[in-house]
Amino acid sequence: MFFRVAFLVLRKDFAIEIKSREILYTTLLFAVSCVLVFAFALVKEGEAPPDAAPAILWIAIMFAGTLALGRTFERERYGETLRALLLAPAPRPALYVGKLLGIVLLLGVAELVLVPLVAFFFLAPFFAKPLLMTLLLAAGTIGFAAVGTLFAAMLMRVRTRDVLLPILLYPITVPVIIGGVRGTAALLASPADEAMATMWLAILAAFDVVFITLSLWTFEVLMTE
């Protein structure tokens, strides 16, 4: 029942998105613009400062993620469809899981474009350790999306949601940006520091477990008016 509901929510979001592809395209373009803005701000005499690539990649993921979170729930708010979802005889945490999976998938697709782009612009060896790199990206994205989905959902009823989302989200997801950037930088170093990257991966995984558990526990209470 639980996973079926989560899957149905995901399929519903997927079906809407596949028709217009609005959120995917806008998120992607925004992420690419982010990379370019940071590139122009940081590159000096044709050279990027050391460790700029992982920093720019994670900033782009977080900024684009914030935008995607806002847009996804704006769509639900516009059609008053989240209220309908909440009225359905389904376990509420399953709705959260469905929404979270949707955001993680969307950001995953965005990363498929972003990572090669950053690798291309900054000559960074992103594909030297593909398994660890994928795990780091996945753990970081899930952690960011876990807190983001809960906050975006609960901010739906608030008028100032657009600015409150980043204000609340960034201080709490700081471990994600530190862990993501440091872990990715360790993998991009030559030679790659796998022990360091694995340690950051473990911290990110622990963050994911704690915050998904807390979100599942609080989602029901927070979404009840």
Binding site: R159, I172, A206
Partner: peptide, 24 residues
């Protein structure tokens, strides 16, 4: 600035903010 019902949102921020401290 959260408007009506912001007590609950704030409580979630308080809880998450406390939980994130050891990670930070």
């Amino acid at each position: 600035y959260g408007g009506p019902g912001s007590e609950k949102l704030a409580a979630a921020v308080g809880l998450f903010g406390t939980a994130v401290a050891p990670f930070v």
